[in-house]
Structures are given as structure tokens and as C-alpha cells.
Nucleic acid binder design. Structure first.
Lengths: 104, 104
DNA sequence: CTTCTATTTCGACTATTCTTGAAATATATT
DNA sequence: AATATATTTCAAGAATAGTCGAAATAGAAG
């Protein structure tokens, strides 16, 4: 993963609203959650949420699928894997990073 | 780790300059690097670098120690561990999220 | 084809971040 | 004390992000 891409994804996760959204989606697993459900949960204007969702979509961290009038959001687990991989491998490569094991 | 703190650290890492700085410091290991060396490496105004360093310091990702007129910067490996831990545990990295009701 | 629900886009505003040169501070050396 | 080096703080402008309500769009159902 390139540094620029990692930075964009980190920036995207680095907002409390978006991190909350992302966490809810990761925890929801493969089923995902409808936008409306996220809005109820977080309690912000629909347009604001939509704006944050676009940020997460643009960086590839989540995706949306339409089911009738409802948009289902899902975390993209692969991109999270790659991001954590970047932090652990690319950044901790030469150092004694005690995060157990996962060096690819 | 609280969500707010994780978000602040992610935001701090989510800027290309700061991620570059952080990566350089992690790779430099326990010895760290002087501010001036980082400036040469990255090529921005000293005041700009100082501003970014403060962000990384404020979020606990790096620290500084004075050696005569020089300030040595070091990555705080423990805080990186905690942050990756948050992403992995709290947000459930390895998919197959065990949705054990702790959603909030 | 009208209406209903769900969500996005638009427009406008405020707040925050990024950037830099100049001035200030800290420490060492003469 | 005067000078030199390393770095920060200050001040100010430009750029970007966050917020919201209103209007627009997409699809389903009457």
C-alpha cells in the first residue's frame, strides 16, 4: 500500500463520526446496516451522514448496495486488513514492534 | 482505548506529512531522529514541521527529548500498539465479527 | 402517474487545518 | 556578554472539512 492511500484511509477513520460509523459496520458484519439505521444510532442530519459515508466509500473502507429504497452499508474488511498491514509492516518493519506476529 | 482518542490518533496519522514523519521515526527505532534531520528528509518549512510534530506529540504518538540544542523525536511504540489493538479488537479486524452485543 | 420512504446532492455558512516568514526561545561556544 | 545553531511560537492568509435545511433523485406501491 502506498503512503498516500494509507494516509487517506487513516484520515477518513480519524473523525469521530466516521469511526463510529465504521465500527458499527464492522460489528454488523457481512449483513451491514442501512443508512437510516446508522442515522438513528448516531443522531446527525441525514445530509451530514451522507457526506461522511462518501468519505469512507471514496477511500474504499466501506461499500454500499441498494436494496429497494434502502442503501445497505458494509465494511470492506480487506481494506482494513491492508491498512493495519501497512501500519504493522511498513511502519514497524525495522523496529521492535511487539504487535504479535502478523508479519507478511 | 476510547473512540475519541483513537480518532484523534488516526487523524494525526492521516496526513501525508505526519505519516511520513511517523514512519521515519518508527524506522529509526529507539535512537529517534533530530527535528532538523526530519526537515531535510521531508523538505518543508521548519515551522510547518513543528506544527505537525506538535500534533503527533499531542496525540501521544511520538515524544521529544532535548539533547543540547537539538530535539530528538521518537515514536511511541506503545501508543501504536494500542491504536492497532483498538482497530483489531474494538473494531474487529479479522471479519467474522463476533457480534456479542457490545454495540454502542 | 402520484405518492411515500430512503437517501443524496446542493448551497451556504462556520470551523478547523495547513502553510509560511518573522520573531522569540533555548542551549552551547567564544 | 555576544554570537551561532536548533527549534518553536506567533500572526495571518488560503485551503479544506463539517454542518445543516431544502430540494432533488431513486425505487416501491397504490
Amino acid at each position: 500500500m502506498k503512503l498516500e492511500k494509507a494516509a487517506k484511509q487513516l484520515e477518513s477513520l480519524g473523525n469521530p463520526v466516521r469511526l463510529q460509523v465504521y465500527r458499527a459496520l464492522v460489528r454488523a458484519g457481512e449483513d451491514g446496516l442501512p443508512v437510516g439505521h446508522l442515522q438513528d444510532k448516531i443522531g446527525i442530519a441525514a445530509s451530514t451522514l451522507s457526506h461522511h459515508l462518501r468519505s469512507l466509500i471514496n477511500t474504499g473502507l466501506i461499500s454500499q448496495e441498494r436494496q429497494a429504497t434502502t442503501l445497505i452499508c458494509r465494511a470492506n474488511f480487506q481494506s482494513m486488513d491492508q491498512l493495519v498491514g501497512y501500519l504493522v509492516n511498513e511502519c514497524c518493519l525495522d523496529a521492535r514492534c511487539k504487535t504479535d506476529g502478523k508479519v507478511a
